[in-house]
Design a binder for these strands. Structure first.
Lengths: 188, 188
DNA sequence: TACGTTGATGACAGTCACTGACATGGCCGT
DNA sequence: ACGGCCATGTCAGTGACTGTCATCAACGTA
């Protein structure tokens, strides 16, 4: 048996999310999170760069998934369809997590600092998508525009998915939203 | 003559920008800003909600301008062209401010907190544009998508304008970028 | 002219996010 | 058995931000 309980990071994450839900993000101190996890404040900051990051550290996985998904699309596809395919494939990741995603989204939506952090994470997804397109030979500004538009679609599709308890498949909503984008951009 | 020097807010803003450029945002304390402006730290926080906001309080003006510009476009225009017209009209505001915009952008780009704040300000512009479209009868998700796409174009056009010292007219770049977006969305 | 009100600022103590430096003590390889 | 490793604890900071009360010129009003 170890000197310490295992999975310190996981305990901190669980404690933080519980407290953010119970009493709100601003009303929760890092000392309280650490105490509930049986650790000290200093240890919290060894695992997470700041009080917000505990809700966002998983976004690296999402970025890697998107980049791999872009690489998997056939070379013949147009940039916007490469992006659409990659964003659609995210649906599988979220399939079993509708309820936890909804809870997390509620916490984030209630606080401006957390919304800021969410936006910069989405911007980093966009930057990664644009990079992946450039590696396929797509030039700027088309690469940046396709990536930004794709993330815009993702944001809107995600909110619709969160708001619809009966729809487990985000991919479907993403597809519809890309079609809407194409219609809007065509001036309809 | 007043009890205090006039234009406290303006002095604070000037001092803050100078210091952010001279030694960087993180290396500048609010106490130093206040001292250079001949005021106290407490007074800084009466004029600006936080240390970042001093670079962003002007964004309300931009939002109002965009909303008015949307209202000024003929009813017959498609949503994406309404947004394009509104975003193009921003060019006039920036025409004489190429150099100060570039300096400000350099400061923001160098710091993650400031980039976060910039993103949430852009998101609030997007929300305002979507509202303005809804008031014209455009329904969701078309309104949100057109607004998000428009802000995405603005971000990209703005960076190109900043990077091109010989191009004083952002409107031209915005127009080209909207055309690129339309081409990308059409699968080209 | 006296006087009460207002509003921007100062002074000051306090909370909390975050950091650097050093100490502790099981674990693991030799 | 020993010695270094590493996750954690401890502690003393710094700096952003807030609440509260004091100050005092300006201004309106009697």
């Amino acid at each position: 048996m170890g000197r310490w309980e295992p999975n310190a990071r996981g305990r901190l994450e669980k404690a933080a999310i519980e407290l953010y839900i119970e009493r709100g993000y601003e009303q929760t101190t890092v000392a309280e999170i650490a105490k509930r996890a049986g650790l000290t404040e200093r240890t919290f900051f060894r695992h997470f760069a700041d009080k917000r990051e505990v809700l966002f550290w998983g976004s690296g996985t999402l970025r890697d998934h998107l980049v791999n998904a872009v690489a998997a699309v056939p070379d013949s596809a147009a940039p916007i369809d490469v992006i659409a395919g990659a964003v659609e494939s995210i649906g599988a990741i979220f399939r079993e997590r509708h309820e936890s995603a909804r809870r997390r989204h509620t916490v984030i939506a209630a606080n401006a600092e957390l919304r800021e952090r969410e936006l910069i994470k989405l911007a980093s997804l966009s930057a990664a998508l644009a990079d992946a397109l450039r590696r396929r030979g797509v030039t700027d500004p088309a690469a940046s525009l396709a990536a930004e538009a794709g993330i815009a679609v993702f944001k809107i599709a995600f909110e619709r998915w969160i708001g619809d308890p009966g729809e487990p498949d985000m991919s479907q909503i993403v597809r519809e939203s890309f079609d809407e984008l194409k219609a809007v951009a065509a001036g309809r």
